[in-house]
């Protein structure tokens, strides 16, 4: 067993874990944060994307033990008391989801994308940056629209949103 301490969605989280425990298993099974999903075994679908120390990572391909001392944000931690994150709102407004299974990973990837590449995202950039996220329902059309709109909305909200993480 290994002692793991990290901060998840702003709250301390610690446990004694089998060292095999993946971050996604820690989140889902121990913290009951089931918004982070598992869609494949080979780190390709992106349904499990969360933020670790401000970067999007695939939580199925990180040991929970590796995250000791880290700040982890999941889809459940994205909205704040004031309401939904602009990217969440953009996904709803643009019908960027159907079955919803890939959606948490898509939204976490999209927010990370805006942090890295800024608010003005063209379609080609968005599509290329979704390399690691699969969706089987939407044909990506509305996801791309949602991310472009969400990025604009994040710009409008300004730096306050950046502090949230």
């Amino acid at each position: 067993m290994v002692a793991v301490n990290m901060t998840v969605n702003g709250k301390p989280a610690s446990a004694e874990l089998d060292p095999r425990t993946l971050l996604v298993q820690f989140l889902r099974d121990h913290l009951r944060l089931t918004g982070t999903h598992v869609g494949c075994d080979t780190s390709q679908c992106g349904a499990c994307v969360v933020h670790m120390d401000g970067h999007a990572v695939k939580s199925c391909t990180v040991l929970a033990a590796t995250c000791s001392g880290s700040q982890v944000t999941t889809i459940e931690g994205l909205a704040n008391a004031a309401g939904l994150h602009p990217m969440q709102e953009a996904f709803r407004e643009n019908h960027g989801l159907q079955c919803g299974f890939c959606t948490p990973g898509m939204i976490m990837t999209a927010v990370d994308l805006v942090h890295r590449k800024g608010f003005a995202l063209d379609e080609t950039t968005i599509r290329e940056e979704l390399e690691g996220n699969l969706c089987r329902c939407t044909g990506y059309h509305n996801i791309v629209k949602a991310i472009a709109a969400g990025a604009q909305a994040m710009a409008a909200e300004g730096p306050a949103q950046q502090v949230a993480e």
Partner: peptide
């Protein structure tokens, strides 16, 4: 040795690689 884990962990998950000890270099 566990570095970024982006190749090793998927192989370990599929039980294609076995390690008695795993030394995590991330710290």
């Amino acid at each position: 040795l566990l570095a970024g884990g982006q190749s090793l962990l998927p192989m370990m998950k599929l039980r294609l690689v076995q390690a008695g000890d795993l030394v995590d270099l991330n710290a």
